[in-house]
């Protein structure tokens, strides 16, 4: 564990807490893409298949349970909670993400560290996470003004993988045999997809104005 990865995990945890806060405090999920939440639930379920087989550390196991539990809870809430579900932007959240899921799974069948069930699903989860934010970014553009908590949620979710990139650079420099090309390349693509969001987020912060993404 290094400071970059810890910062990344904490930033990721903060993004989840901000989203939970938004949903429970405002009893609303307006501006949140259910499709991105479902993609993230798939990402965690596919990535943490080793939850019971490989014990890394208490921290690792607890964080995996937190990410799986929170993503499923948010999906459940947005689908079935009688108050929250009414504020879901169903007609705006129309990204056909099964194309993404199919493409990522096909890529994982071709490009993986080892051809085993667990490794193929791990690679699938890495590729899928890189594009999982797309429905959310599309929804933000369509829904015009973005409330503060939603903007902060997306910001922290994008920032966490940027910390992971620093972690991979640090590990590459300090650990002789460290190579995680699948994670690194996907992480760069994932962070790049946030580039324009980060730009408009910074502008709104500098001008102390509402976050507006151009349509």
């Amino acid at each position: 564990m290094n400071i970059f990865r810890l910062a990344g995990d904490m930033t990721h945890l903060i993004s989840v807490l901000v989203l939970l806060l938004k949903i429970y405090a405002t009893k609303s999920c307006s501006g949140i893409s259910l499709k991105t939440q479902e993609l993230y639930a798939m990402v965690f379920l596919a990535r943490y298949l080793d939850l019971f087989s490989d014990f890394i550390s208490l921290y690792n196991t607890v964080m995996k349970l937190v990410f799986i539990g929170s993503s499923l809870a948010i999906v459940w809430c947005m689908r079935y909670h009688r108050v929250v579900r009414r504020s879901y932007d169903r007609e705006l959240d129309t990204f056909r993400y099964w194309i993404l899921v199919g493409a990522c799974f096909t890529l994982a069948l071709v490009l993986h560290e080892k051809f085993s069930f667990q490794e193929v699903f791990w690679a699938f989860s890495i590729y899928l996470e890189a594009v999982a934010i797309l429905p959310q970014l599309v929804l933000l553009q369509r829904s015009g003004n973005v409330d503060n908590l939603t903007g902060q949620y997306v910001f922290f979710l994008g920032a966490y993988r940027a910390f992971y990139i620093l972690n991979w650079i640090y590990r590459y420099l300090t650990e002789p045999r460290f190579t995680r090309w699948i994670s690194c390349v996907s992480g760069l693509v994932q962070t790049a997809l946030y580039a324009d969001f980060f730009y408009y987020y910074f502008i709104s912060w500098k001008n102390n104005a509402k976050l507006q993404l151009p349509a």
């Binding site: 990535r47 080793d50 490989d54 890394i56 995996k64 080892k114 791990w122 995680r180 994670s183």
Partner: peptide
């Protein structure tokens, strides 16, 4: 082939 080392990252 050697099993890949366990994934220690989240």
């Amino acid at each position: 082939s050697p099993a890949t080392e366990p994934k220690d990252e989240l």
